[in-house]
């Protein structure tokens, strides 16, 4: 008797689970088609009403909120998804991993505006900093930066090229100084803590 009840309970719960899972697939399926037909992005989570709805990204100019949709060029400008198709994806910023796209030659930006053969002067030196708080050490790779920039972009105006001469804080970065001159505006956003705070903290001083 009890066994039968248990069995039926299990059966109904299984059935319920199946119903729920079909329901989620049904509700999740039309979302990507509606948002971005050509996107290779994972479908936004829609089945949990408590989760904040993922805001649409990489919208075409006419729908992005800062272009005037009534101007003729809004239809002529290249939509981001089409332009950035085939680049290494990421989950932040433009949804593109720019450094990887450059290193794997998915983008080949010119180093000189007129000379397509000019090459960057890459410097492969890592700078490690120990932050004041408890976050892991920051590793600054000159390599990834000198593939895009030249020395004079950062030195000496933003960073004094001397050990210990630069006061850096997250407050300054969030206000657009130091690393925040680019990171949080064009380069990957500061929400990606671990991309900079990437090395186990050196042993604390006794």
């Amino acid at each position: 008797m009890i066994k039968n009840i248990v069995k039926s309970v299990i059966a109904t719960s299984l059935f319920g689970a199946i119903v729920v899972s079909t329901a989620t697939t049904v509700s999740a399926a039309p979302a990507p088609a509606a948002a971005q037909p050509a996107a290779a992005q994972p479908a936004p989570v829609t089945f949990n009403r408590l989760l904040k709805k993922a805001s649409p990204t990489n919208l075409p100019p006419a729908e992005d909120g800062i272009h005037d949709p009534t101007v003729d060029s809004a239809q002529m400008l290249q939509p981001p998804l089409q332009g950035m198709n085939g680049l290494t994806r990421s989950n932040f910023g433009n949804n593109v991993n720019w450094v990887n796209s450059l290193q794997t030659k998915k983008v080949i930006p010119r180093w000189d505006r007129a000379d397509p053969n000019a090459e960057s002067l890459v410097m492969d030196v890592n700078i490690v900093r120990t932050p004041r708080g408890s976050m892991p050490d920051v590793v600054f790779p000159h390599k990834a930066h000198t593939e895009w920039l030249e020395c004079s972009n950062c030195h000496p105006a933003i960073f004094v090229p001397q050990k210990g001469a630069n006061q850096i804080s997250m407050a300054a970065i969030l206000l657009g100084q130091k690393c925040g001159v680019c990171h949080g505006k064009v380069a990957f956003p500061v929400s990606e803590c671990k991309l900079c705070h990437s090395q186990k903290r050196a042993a604390a001083a006794p």
Binding site: D68, M84, V107, P109, R113, S120, L149, V186
Partner: peptide, 22 residues
């Protein structure tokens, strides 16, 4: 109308240095 400059479009074609240094 205001000007909109798409960074993504330009950085695919030119390194940051081209505009921000040269």
């Amino acid at each position: 109308r205001p000007v909109v400059f798409p960074h993504w479009f330009h950085r695919m074609r030119f390194a940051c240095k081209v505009c921000h240094a040269d």
